[in-house]
């Protein structure tokens, strides 16, 4: 059995969780197993996960699970995994996955790989799976030798497969230990796809000269439905919020499209973004190192080029 933890946010399954369910289903097919999903806490529309490949959805509905505590989650997920006989347990490489997958690996005596970016291969009994290492500068293939395996899936690594049938839902009655971490408040940036999930990203750097010019970046992002990001010095000087900082010491992302505006392309910046499918660089300096990592380049003054690009995008959207 392959067990996938599906996370919800505001009553809807997160895109990264739908990717994980798709990934779990494909992994199960490789292993000749079934894939089932697990949902913790208040949630509705659970049968929907069947459309993405889950043959069954288990639900632990205890409201206390709406307060996330990795220790409690690890205990509940491990117990559910034992009850259903899970051999592979899959998380998203999300904030929740990052703090829980390692705990579950310890509890289940499982080998684990975090942030995998491709389906596993099973060759003569050897279970191998790939992930990005050295902040995107290389890939490593891991071999897992344990009976039970724990994986967390990097966002945007696999397209979500829809089109299946709704799945039956079964409640699991499990002991939920008391939480030791209390969530006092959650603040989410409203209406914007978080960076790790974003398919389109518009990012800007020190070439912007100051925070007062960011309206041209926001306008382009809005027309495209993209999420905004920035380079480290921009976040360090407080021009932009630090959760927009991408790179080796920021968030590592792999969107379909990364547009870098007024960013030189230092190796530490590239580390977090060079696995993007397509990279566009807009820079007035033809020698900027970023052009070597780009698919499309525009040599020009961003203050002219960006408004022109926004206009062209608007036209394209209108057609």
């Amino acid at each position: 059995m392959v067990l996938i933890l599906a996370e919800t946010q505001k009553g809807k399954f997160k895109k990264t969780s739908l990717e994980a369910v798709t990934y779990g289903d494909k992994t199960a097919q490789l292993l000749g197993m079934e894939s089932v999903a697990l949902v913790l806490g208040s949630a509705s529309g659970l049968e929907e996960l069947g459309k993405y490949g889950a043959t069954k959805v288990y639900h632990v509905p205890n409201q206390s699970l709406d307060n996330f505590d990795s220790q409690v989650y690890a205990a509940v997920i491990s117990e559910a995994a034992r009850q259903v006989g899970a051999k592979v347990i899959i998380f998203s490489h999300s904030a929740l996955g990052k703090s829980t997958a390692g705990r579950v690996a310890v509890r289940m005596n499982a080998g684990s790989v975090s942030g995998v970016n491709a389906l596993p291969t099973v060759d003569g009994g050897a279970f191998r799976v790939k992930k990005g290492v050295f902040s995107g500068k290389a890939f490593a293939e891991y071999e897992l030798k344990s009976d039970v395996k724990v994986l967390s899936l990097m966002g945007n690594s696999i397209p979500v497969a829809g089109g299946g049938e709704p799945a039956p839902v079964e409640e699991l009655n499990l002991d939920v230990p008391p939480a030791r971490v209390t969530v006092k408040k959650l603040e989410r940036v409203e209406g914007i796809t978080p960076l790790p999930e974003a398919e389109l990203v518009v990012s800007a750097g020190r070439g912007m000269k100051g925070p007062e010019h960011w309206n041209i970046i926001e306008e382009l992002a809005e027309v495209m439905g993209a999420t905004t990001a920035c380079s480290r010095p921009v976040a360090d000087t407080g021009w932009r919020p630090h959760h927009e900082h991408v790179g080796q010491t920021g968030i590592a992302i792999r969107p379909n499209l990364y547009i870098a505006i007024g960013i030189s392309g230092a190796i530490q910046h590239l580390a977090g973004v060079n696995n993007s499918k397509t990279i566009v660089v807009i820079n007035k300096d033809p020698e900027a190192p970023f052009f070597k990592a780009a698919d499309y380049g525009v040599v020009g003054d961003l203050f002219d080029v960006v408004p022109r690009l926004t206009k062209a995008m608007k036209q394209f959207k209108a057609e």
Partner: peptide
């Protein structure tokens, strides 16, 4: 050890960048 890195690869080299006329964002 239950999980070991057994093989590494480098990302494929990027081809040459395609330069676009800054006047022609269409």
């Amino acid at each position: 050890d239950l999980s070991v890195a057994v093989h590494f690869t480098l990302p494929p080299e990027k081809g040459d960048v395609k330069l676009i006329d800054p006047e022609n964002m269409e």
